[in-house]
Amino acid sequence: MSRVVFLDERCKGCLLCTTVCPKGIIVQSSRFNRQGYKVAEVPADAMKDCTGCASCALICPDVAIRVIKSRKAKKAGKE
């Protein structure tokens, strides 16, 4: 299983990540960070669908997203 971590204080709520997720699991949350931006998130129940492709991290202009992949998932993906 893979997962993404949003660094809330880095996120500027531009939502570019929401446009590139192949699973469409990234959404705008209802949380505002200290700078007043409404941050992006993957709802807890949707995280299981994350493939760890890192597209969201790649397009994020603010280096606000970390992508963590389980080694098993990587193998499974290759099979």
Partner: peptide, 10 residues
């Protein structure tokens, strides 16, 4: 976790 790795290096 033990079976995890970063998929995106900063």
């Amino acid at each position: 976790a033990d079976d995890e790795q970063m998929a995106f290096e900063v």
